[in-house]
């Protein structure tokens, strides 16, 4: 089922959570809404679910107006951030809830409910926990119960709010892969909210990067990482080395230094130079476009990073650069930096 979001705006008193957001999610995809806290991603998810109402705009499921339907009529599976399992019900009853509250012609006989719940519990691999209560489960198990419960109503749309946020790193990785497989098996469109870029990049078909109530970029994980559309996306996704710069008379200035770097078609005015730490080479201080002093060198595992202080026009800037294997940098020494791949954006 495809989801269309058209010019959706949502304000909480004076705070604008969503500012004229439009997004098309094709049916069957797994889409990640990625952004820092306060970017409006959870609000957008709740509006899709019908738990919040937009101040303006449209939400359509397969072209049909979804805003005309309340949350209980939308048949959307929602997995809550802290799972929101019914604490006084067993795992079995939690999963059965959506089937038990059905009325009239949709009501299932008890045997059918039993069968469906058992099916779901084996699908999420926790059939042996059916009689336990939520308080007796681990985080990962609760997550699976929450998912089984959401799937019980056979939703065409599955919404997940920070599904792995409360789990430790190892369980998180395992569940992530498992969720990806589950999505492939089911005829659902999944939308996942996360602030964890690694999670979004690894899991999603399409990543929607959000910041301050707006969509900054929509693209495949590869696209948003390799060709960020804005300085915000560059900063937020992956690691960035960021330098204040300026475009004047057709050249890029970093600090007071005129460099041979490409302005990438940017007009005159303040700018920002952004590069990935591993896309920056070390060079002789005299010849490089940027030079500074090594502040600290840190090694973790196979990678070595150096903090380098660069004199800027508005005070010093500290950047982090990847040190190539085998190279030795002395703390306090002068070093030049040559960005191999970089992007130039207008300064915000």
């Amino acid at each position: 089922m495809s989801i269309d979001i058209v010019n959706v705006t949502k304000r909480f008193k004076t705070f604008t959570a969503l500012d004229n957001v439009s997004l098309r999610i094709p049916g069957g995809q797994l889409v990640a809404l990625l952004g820092p806290s306060g970017s409006g991603k959870t609000t957008l998810l709740r509006i899709i679910a019908g738990l919040d109402w937009p101040d303006g705009g449209e939400v359509r499921f397969d072209g049909q107006d979804a805003l005309a339907r309340s949350v209980r009529e939308r048949n959307v599976g929602f997995v809550f951030q802290h799972y929101a399992l019914f604490r006084h019900m067993s795992v079995f009853e939690n999963v059965a809830f959506g089937l038990r509250v059905r009325k009239g012609a949709d009501k299932l006989p008890d045997a059918a409910i039993r069968e469906k719940v058992n099916q779901l519990l084996s699908l999420v691999q926790i059939d042996w926990l059916a009689d336990r209560y939520p308080a007796q489960l681990s985080g990962g198990q609760r997550q699976r119960v929450a998912l089984a419960r959401a799937l019980a109503i056979s939703p065409r749309i599955l919404l997940l709010d920070e599904p792995f946020g409360a789990l430790d790193a190892k369980v998180r990785k395992e569940l992530r892969r498992w969720l990806r497989n589950l999505h492939e098996e089911l005829p659902v469109t999944s939308v996942l909210v996360t602030h964890d870029q690694e999670e979004a990049l690894e899991l999603a078909d399409t990543v929607v990067v959000m910041g301050k109530g707006r969509i900054e970029q929509v693209g495949s994980p590869q696209e948003v990482y390799d060709t960020p559309a804005t300085a915000f996306v560059h900063d937020f996704i992956g690691e960035s080395l960021s330098l204040p710069a300026r475009v004047a008379d057709g050249a890029l200035y970093v600090g007071a230094r005129r460099t041979a770097l490409d302005t990438q078609g940017l007009g005159e005015g303040p700018a920002r130079l952004l590069a990935r730490p591993h896309d920056v080479d070390f060079a002789e201080p005299g010849t490089a476009p940027v030079a500074g002093r090594v502040l600290a060198v840190r090694t973790f595992g196979p990678t070595t990073r150096a903090d380098i202080v660069l004199p800027g026009t508005n005070g010093d800037v500290v950047v982090e650069a990847a040190v190539p294997v085998g190279a030795r940098l002395a703390v306090g020494s002068e070093v030049g930096l040559v960005p191999r791949r970089y992007r130039v954006f207008p300064a915000a």
């Binding site: 679910a49 019908g50 738990l51 309340s70 949350v71 209980r72 009529e73 939308r74 048949n75 959307v76 599976g77 929602f78 809550f80 802290h82 929101a84 399992l85 019914f86 604490r87 006084h88 809830f97 959506g98 509250v101 059905r102 009325k103 419960r149 959401a150 019980a152 109503i153």
Partner: peptide, 23 residues
Amino acid sequence: AEEEAAASLGASGLSIFFRVTLP
């Protein structure tokens, strides 16, 4: 959150109250 979960699963207001909130 539990009330919202119940609503998303199709429960009516009354049903939510007696099955989730009250217990």
